[in-house]
Design a protein around this nucleic acid. Sequence first.
DNA 1: CCTACCGATCGGTAGG
DNA 2: CCTACCGATCGGTAGG
Lengths: 194, 194
Amino acid sequence: MNRKSKKQIIVEEAAVLFNEMGYSATSMNDIARKLGVKAPSLYNHIKSKQEILSILLLSIANKFYKGIQEVTSTEDSYRFKLKEIIKMHIRVATENQHITALITHDWKHLEEPSLSKFVKIRLDYRKKLKEVILGGMKAGELKTANIEITLNAILSSLRWIYNSEIYADTSNVSLDELEKTLLDIVFSGVDENY
Amino acid sequence: MNRKSKKQIIVEEAAVLFNEMGYSATSMNDIARKLGVKAPSLYNHIKSKQEILSILLLSIANKFYKGIQEVTSTEDSYRFKLKEIIKMHIRVATENQHITALITHDWKHLEEPSLSKFVKIRLDYRKKLKEVILGGMKAGELKTANIEITLNAILSSLRWIYNSEIYADTSNVSLDELEKTLLDIVFSGVDENY
DNA sequence: CCTACCGATCGGTAGG
DNA sequence: CCTACCGATCGGTAGG
């Protein structure tokens, strides 16, 4: 078992606090207190508060990107690819809940050059997902509808998973049930007979 | 045409800035600068920064709550009610985009007693929506599935509408098309043939 | 790892 | 509406 470096411990604790209060409302003092040290001691391990945010966001963005890259490099149908992307997205999100939640708002507090890097990865992710959905529509596997609305609705329908205070209600749900239920809702909706 | 009070103008401009940078990262100075005055002048119209947040969040929460109350007080089918709730939700969100976005994160910065009031309204909204979905499942109008996952997926699938930087991609979409497409996705999913 | 300390900025008040 | 100013806190540095 690898021992965690001090830096890793700081970064992981910061993710929890950023989640609870937001990046701006979290002080270095808050992070230090949780770790039982004084704020200036943190700077022996990290360069700045901004570095912590940058590490967190670029690492999670790359995890998602690597995931979609693997799925889209196969020769499967668009429908199958979309299912695999959703499953991968759910898996990465649940395994990195605190960090993933930062994608929603705290990325705005990134400074250059990290900001541009993050935005690029995120746009590339969106682009790859868009290609799969568009491909599926053209191949007759998915219903033809406004691509931006469809893309946003699919991505957004998964976003509550990151949100710990909402996710808490479903903490007794297994990953399998989560995947199965969400795939069913996205692919065939909530209506019983239509 | 009603003239807006200074207070209204301050509150609305603050909503835009809270959206861009978050409540904590927005200073009274930022708000004042946008309005062409000095920060201390704001206090002739508002009591505190916190009061601005409280006004914004309680007003939007009440709009959503009033909307769901109207829909659920009818005698229509659960399926029809769910459709009307989604349409209402889309309408309120698009008409109050900047304010609605604060529901996602900045509510955490509310202080008592506003925090408890806001959380209560939000939970009541969730409860009413949950009753409609559960009723629909029991009546055979909606597919039976994990209620919390279904509830979260539906609410979450609409949340991207608040998020202005993403919504920009669909700014050329009419409200009608938005409603129609989202209802179709929620009710019957994205799959073409199943 | 600490104490001591820096300049900058915060929300807000006094007083006119 | 303003200027002048308050105590508190911010991220970060110096030096040991």
